[in-house]
């Protein structure tokens, strides 16, 4: 199992998913991120998916759950860098991630967090 690194940047956490995500890695990431939000008191999280070339229903569910759970803990999550092919595949799967804030890239993601959090 691989570990997805989570970086701290002031009040935010920054995650860039660079590896092929297997189910175990996804579940471990979910746990690690919530723990890190708890420990650091982070108010915002950017998860960058630029290097992710496939999101299936399982990974989509984990990502959606991460957003919901982080929200419960007081941290807003923005997903960034979703590739066009991945976006199209998600629509075919019937997965809309409607309530999930997204942005083009990490930079825009940070801007979005600033706006959402009014900081």
């Amino acid at each position: 199992m691989k570990k997805i690194p989570i970086l701290k940047l002031h009040d935010y956490l920054l995650v860039s998913i660079q590896t092929e995500i297997d189910d175990q890695t996804a579940m471990q990431f979910q746990e690690d991120l919530l723990q890190k939000i708890h420990v650091t008191g982070a108010t915002g999280v950017v998860i960058d998916l630029t290097s992710v070339d496939m999101i299936d229903s399982f990974i989509a569910k984990v990502l959606g759950d991460v957003v919901t759970m982080s929200d419960l803990m007081g941290a807003t999550v923005v997903l960034t860098g979703i590739q066009p092919a991945v976006a199209m595949t998600l629509i075919d799967l019937g997965i809309h991630l409607q309530n999930v804030p997204t942005a083009l890239d990490i930079e825009q993601g940070l801007v979005k967090l600033h706006q959402e959090l009014g900081a």
Binding site: D53, M54, I55, A85, V86, M88, T89, D92
Partner: peptide, 8 residues
Amino acid sequence: VDQARFAT
């Protein structure tokens, strides 16, 4: 896109 569809 079709590669992603197939892999999914």
